[in-house]
Amino acid sequence: MTLTIQQYHPDLKRVWNDFIDHSINGTFLLHRDFMDYHHDRFKDHSLLVFNEDALICCIPAHTVQDSIYSHRGLSYGGLILNKISAQNIDLVLELFVEYVKGHAFAKAELQPPPLSYNTINSEIAKYLKNYGFKINRVLHNQYVNLKEEVNVSPKKSIGYRNGKFDGLSIHKGSDFKSFWDFVLVPQLDSRHASKPVHNVEEIELLHSRFPEQIIQHNAWRDGELLAGITFFIKDKVVKSQYASSSLKGMKTDAVGFIYMEAMKEFKEKGFSIMDYGPVNERDGAINEGLLRFKKQLGCVEEEWKRWVIEL
């Protein structure tokens, strides 16, 4: 093999996107139309690895001073592979580290997708460890395997039996504004003094670019919005990107209702994983209440690791 590596340039957008579409572990988050919506916030330094003239690996990345990171405007990045590069992870990784050294970066950080998404991510983790990368963050990610029986706690499903869920209806589509304006933003502000990563204009823009991959599920009762979940569809994985409910919605466990109904829907459609996201606070501590909520919905845990090498 004759491998070369080069920095991404907008002229390579179509080549990049075509590769992501046919890669083993890439998702729509790694399309340039998604990555570039906040290009002004990050100094992009994504990389492409070629075997002669054939692209075999994409590495979404950006730089801050003398360090290169898996693109932190995304949930993950790392080595995005096809069949050829999957058989030569060691060579690709060696070339990446040589590039980092050659450009005088002091540190390189890689955040692969969760292991549950694809078995190749476990292989990548093994090579990172063997090459000398160290773990510098561990998130406790929660997911359910939709190919297996999901053990939802009776404490969650009781709403079907005691009438708590009566009258709830789920509207699916693109009504992000109602959810953002009346539920998500007010609840994040009052409970956590924070804001969603995407504002409503950004999520609507991304939905316009990826209408099949970004879907809103809102729970209503008697004309009142009680809760909502924003789902990101990543091949056979569905990820709850945002989930929140009003105070009245909390009393009826409207978010739990949406999750349970969504699990049935996505299971019937042949999805393999439903990713509920990590339960860690910003300082890494576990939010015990959130963990309990997700466990009651049948989630199992995986460690989602970020890797770093200092040069």
Rank of each mutant, 00 (worst) to 15 (best):
L3P: 13
L3C: 10
I5Q: 06
Y8L: 00
W16D: 00
F19E: 01
S23I: 12
G26H: 09
T27F: 11
T27L: 05
L30R: 06
D33K: 15
R41N: 14
D44E: 15
V49G: 03
F50M: 08
E52T: 14
E52M: 08
A54S: 13
A54I: 11
I56C: 01
C57I: 00
I59W: 03
A61Q: 07
V64N: 15
V64I: 12
V64F: 08
I68V: 14
G73L: 04
Y76D: 05
G77Q: 07
G77L: 04
G78Y: 01
L79T: 05
K83W: 09
K83E: 14
A86H: 12
N88M: 06
V92M: 09
V92E: 07
L95Q: 13
E98N: 11
Y99V: 00
P114G: 11
S116L: 12
K129V: 09
Y131P: 00
G132M: 00
K134D: 14
I135L: 09
N136D: 15
R137V: 12
V138C: 11
L139F: 10
N141Y: 08
Q142W: 00
Y143T: 08
N145V: 15
V150S: 01
P154C: 05
G163C: 00
G167W: 07
S174T: 15
S178Y: 06
P186A: 05
P186K: 03
Q187M: 15
H192W: 13
A193N: 13
P196V: 04
P196N: 09
R209P: 01
E212N: 14
E212P: 10
I215G: 10
A219Q: 04
W220M: 10
W220R: 01
G228N: 00
K234C: 08
V237Q: 06
V237G: 02
S240T: 14
A243G: 15
S246N: 03
K248I: 09
K251A: 14
D253C: 04
A254C: 01
M260N: 03
A262N: 03
K264M: 06
E265C: 01
F266C: 00
K267T: 08
K267E: 05
K267W: 07
G270L: 07
Y276V: 02
G277E: 08
E281W: 03
D283P: 08
A285E: 14
G289I: 13
R292T: 12
F293Q: 11
L297R: 06
V300S: 06
E302C: 06
E303R: 15
W304E: 04
R306W: 11
R306D: 07
V308E: 13
I309V: 03
I309T: 08
